[in-house]
Design a protein around this nucleic acid. Structure first.
Lengths: 214, 214
DNA sequence: TATATAGTTCAAACTGTCTTGAACCGCAAG
DNA sequence: CTTGCGGTTCAAGACAGTTTGAACTATATA
């Protein structure tokens, strides 16, 4: 690998930028986006690195390249794996897991967001409903107040609809261009060859027995 | 001074629930939503309280009712005012400002979110573009990498479109029901009367001179 | 079974954000 | 001009979420 001599020597040394600048830019951009959507910045960074390299990377490599701790890498990879945006493989001749990115990134993220949003909205709606009930049965609450609470419920309903539509549209857009992140034809071919070269033969799409995600 | 012993007596006392329960529920529900959208929880709580009461409230009242500090109320009201979701009025016979909620809450929030999102996306796109440029002109970057960066740019574009569509739809939905939060006919009448009773005459839609929002 | 290395866990440290509270400002009344 | 009070500001503190790092567990090899 080309980056070899640059990297491994100075491990303890806090090297601020060991990645080529274009990688750093992409990795951080994705990190920001993912952070914006309520995930951890480093989850996005790890995914982006794996996607850019398009070659299996060990936890150790990720740790070195992104300057994360052992623990952080363990946690982050597990989470990404749970969401299905990366998966781990174990080359037969190698005792450590390697990670590769899933290309259906947005689909997965979309599903997670949708789920999160759904339960959140459910909670809000329940609270407003309860408030309305209480206000109705309380002598202290004037009818206008009940009316206003009802209006907010309706508003919540509308927002829910809009968010649902957004997520669906978003999903469709991405489905429409069908695997926009996936390497196409020739490139994919090359990628596959490169992978094989690296790990020396078939990859075991790991039904993680060793402390895999619960 | 007399204010000392009177006020502070029950101020330090952490009154957990001084609001009727239905108000607490609504106020917190809105707080959660607003927090979810990347604003401060208490901004949502203050707006919700003003909306529910539908009557001008002083900073002091807000402070007491929601258990916030003087400073927090000042900051939060200023921010809400800047976004145009509340405004301050000064009754002629009264030396303190009173706050009232704007009913076009979602419209305003939508605009702010849109703005925030737009500049964020612009930044991300610029970073990806720069990364692509660098990768193209670097001998170390294989063409597949350039290709993958280009793909991510396209993805960013799509997401941007989806978000834009969402915000527009959301706006339309709310416009469609035209002022869903606004008190209608009769109720509005009553509300207005109530307001007049309380503040004792016309309200000055405040071109805040005294330390108003910049 | 012993050894070495990979991987996980979790309390403590860190980070960024929000809130507090006391000093300060400015206006209006005396 | 002084006093009283509403309002603002901002450094310090509280807090939530994230990361670290060292102890611990698991796995592979011999």
């Amino acid at each position: 690998m080309l980056r070899g001599h640059l990297v491994s020597a100075d491990r303890d040394q806090e090297g601020p930028v060991r990645l080529p600048q274009w990688e750093a830019l992409v990795v951080d951009a994705v990190g920001n986006v993912i952070d914006f959507w309520g995930f951890k910045r480093n989850q996005g960074r790890v995914w982006a690195l794996l996607y850019l390299r398009a070659t299996p990377m060990s936890a150790q490599e990720i740790q070195d390249q992104l300057g994360l701790s052992k623990g952080a890498v363990s946690m982050i990879t597990r989470e990404l794996e749970q969401w299905g945006v990366i998966h781990r493989v174990r080359p037969v001749n190698n005792s450590s897991w390697m990670f590769v990115s899933e290309t259906d990134f947005m689909g997965m993220i979309g599903r997670v967001v949708q789920e999160r949003e759904a339960s959140f909205v459910a909670r809000v709606k329940a609270d407003l409903a309860e408030a309305e009930r209480l206000a109705r049965s309380s002598p202290d609450a004037p009818p206008e107040v009940v009316d206003r609470i009802a209006r907010m419920r309706r508003l919540a309903q509308l927002i829910e609809g809009a968010v649902g539509a957004f997520l669906k549209t978003s999903q469709l857009n991405l489905d429409g261009v069908s695997g926009i992140l996936k390497d196409s034809g020739e490139t994919l071919q090359r990628g596959a060859n490169e992978i094989r070269k690296r790990v020396r033969s078939r990859l075991l799409s790991g039904p993680r027995q060793n402390g895999g995600p619960s």
